Amino acid sequence: MRYHRPNLDVLAHTILIIGALIFMLPVVLAVLASTQTPGALFSGTLPLWFGGSGLEHYLTLLSEPVRGVGVPAWQLMLNSLLMALGIAIGKLVFAILAAYALVFFRFPFRRCCFWLIFVTLMLPIEVRIVPTYGVVADLGLLDSYPGLVLPLIASATATFLFRQFFMTLPPELMEAARVDGAGPWRFFIDILLPLSRTNIAALFVIMFIYGWNQYLWPLVAMSSADHATVVMSLKRLTISMDGTPPWHLATAMTVLALLPPVVVIVLMQRWFIKGLVDTEK
């Protein structure tokens, strides 16, 4: 039985609204700053309403080469999008196949293989960036889309989550599929993938944002503007050798960099939440 407590509901919603406003404040300030003129930003007062130059700033970024980078912002966003999609899809494909092999196949040192994969959680890209750069350079993948994606597509976290989910499935499910004549590949395609769709959706959102926000690896591996990403280009835009950095353009580019992750979260919100809290797993 659920008791209705109006005062408690009002208090809870008030706390949630205040918390949401606090988290939204930096984004709101960035949007407002992106519409101001350079003089208004350096006037000493914080702009609390939209300026009249916002459209001009965004059109400048999208149509003209970004200062310090050399290509328009739309190309930077396209590079980031290709990188994020490649990393997210690659991580999901490798993780679900690895988890499938670890759970449903019997082979020597199976548990040892799992722990070797799990140990890689302690080796992020920042720790192994020198040997990774050496391997990518030897393969001739620097300044290329494969060079952006391939070093980051292995995911111990996703492998672990898929493995834990597969272990909750009843063994009778595989036995029934085997009786019906389904081989390992058909069992994976027709049964495991449909059952894993909420997990795939939740992990896709997380991995897409992870790939989109990459800064260090693109900064090291990409030296040409043709493969630069929007996140690494923000730093170059704010570097000024002869005057004040163009903060009005930097904030506008920050807003542009926020849009694709927000769109992915909004479009996949229902699946993302279901994949995290689904009690039927």
Rank of each mutant, 00 (worst) to 15 (best):
R186T: 12
W185V: 13
W212A: 12
M268K: 01
G147D: 09
A95T: 03
L97K: 00
V220A: 12
M83H: 05
H57M: 02
Y133V: 08
G70Y: 02
Q214W: 01
R2M: 14
L85E: 13
I96L: 08
Q36W: 03
G275R: 09
S224A: 10
P171H: 00
M83N: 09
L148T: 10
L123Q: 04
P38W: 04
E175H: 11
T244V: 10
M24W: 11
S223R: 12
L150A: 03
T198Y: 13
P38H: 01
M122W: 04
L82V: 15
A40D: 09
L249G: 03
L21V: 13
T254F: 04
A201L: 13
V179M: 14
T168G: 13
I96T: 05
E280V: 12
L192A: 06
S155E: 06
T238V: 11
I200Q: 06
V69D: 01
L97W: 00
P108T: 06
L258C: 15
M268T: 04
L121K: 04
P218L: 06
S63Y: 07
T14K: 05
F94V: 08
A33P: 00
S155G: 05
L237E: 05
R270G: 01
V136N: 07
R270C: 07
P124K: 00
W185F: 11
W217D: 00
L150E: 01
W217V: 01
T37L: 03
